[in-house]
Design a protein around this nucleic acid. Sequence first.
DNA 1: AAAAGTAATTATGAATTCAATATTAACCAG
DNA 2: CTGGTTAATATTGAATTCATAATTACTTTT
Lengths: 230, 230
Amino acid sequence: MTKILQRNLYREVADRIGDLIEHGELSPGERISEKQLCEKFGVSRTPLREALKVLATEGLIELLPNRGARVVRLTFKKVKDTYDLMAALEGLSGELACQHITDKEITAIRKLHNNMLEHYHQHDLKAYFELNRQIHEGILAASKNEVLQEMYSNLSQRVKRVRYSKKMTQAFWDQAVKDHENMINALEKRDSQLLGQILRDHLCNKLEVATLAGVIEDEAPDEGHSVVNA
Amino acid sequence: MTKILQRNLYREVADRIGDLIEHGELSPGERISEKQLCEKFGVSRTPLREALKVLATEGLIELLPNRGARVVRLTFKKVKDTYDLMAALEGLSGELACQHITDKEITAIRKLHNNMLEHYHQHDLKAYFELNRQIHEGILAASKNEVLQEMYSNLSQRVKRVRYSKKMTQAFWDQAVKDHENMINALEKRDSQLLGQILRDHLCNKLEVATLAGVIEDEAPDEGHSVVNA
DNA sequence: AAAAGTAATTATGAATTCAATATTAACCAG
DNA sequence: CTGGTTAATATTGAATTCATAATTACTTTT
């Protein structure tokens, strides 16, 4: 049962702006010019402004009344908070997955896992990360909780642009693989509590947060006052 | 440091539509007429349509391309999924609160708790619920995690309209109060793990889900095809 | 009378236009 | 020059207009 994908112009525009933010083509704190983006995308201001409103509720940009939109500045605290949340959601996904996962799904994830192990042994970090992502996504899907999946993917979106964990020490990597081994085992035993615990503690997040401490510039409060949607 | 409240027209409209949904003045599955709402609120279609887009990303309504907006149908599963998520978030809020709460905040919550106990002894359910809400909100605030607070309040919004847990047996009530006693104790001892556990298991959610089983009409799949934002 | 097809109506999607606010530039006094 | 005031410009906020798709009503046909 594949869902029909809704393609509104505003959604299209929102996604493309999201990409621009993710790839750093729109800088944090930088004012987003409506006119400029309209020309870039070849759309009028109406769908563009709708997209901005959506992106604001998704937490990617902020709207300052009468002063335009700007990309949210990712402070270290904000990223840390987001990761804390994601860890909790991953934990929940693990618990629920154990309750709802089918044998077929377990087989598929085991397969991904074995595949990932190969890349690990070949030191192919990029391929490893991709499989790693697919495994976590698979568990999330197996939770059969769509609200959870939606929330998680939103949070993931928000921090994507700093998610380039370049330096990964061998020790960290070894530990991550061990975690994954335990995860699969817990999943096959359908041990909710255990899998939940492993995923909550899985160092993937913690590692990234740790390395991020250096990456993120926590500079002077800002230009533009602190404003919040109400 | 009180934040400046942003009052855009679209946000205002979105909130008012949210109220209509919460109070059942817009029925689930019912098509939302733009023109009608424009007249009701005295605004043009532009801000109204912006509001609809925002409400869709907030999960309160669905937009069917070229076929308008309708209020999301709350199936039992959807509500159950949402409560599972909220329980996990409450658990996290408890853990974080223990780490970050100030003595002053603890005192304030203890005060709310004592106040709540009085209403409990006087069998004033309404006042009890209000204090109950304030306590949970206080813990959430004490977590000092704004992303968490934002997510929680969004989830809460989604299920508000079925949150009228009218029948509350004395046994349930007694247990809830005991839970709360334990919560406050854990908080004062700053026992993260314990408070997290209590909040995750707190029957408030489970109770409501249980009673809801009867309240929600899980009817025929629907008119209008299953469409999802992409 | 029922079904199918077509025209008329209505609603939505998006661009344009108008109004209000903020930003920049120009000007002047100290 | 520097600081402040006012005018000019540009940008955002919201209403209107135009275009397109869906729904309804009405024929027409069997």
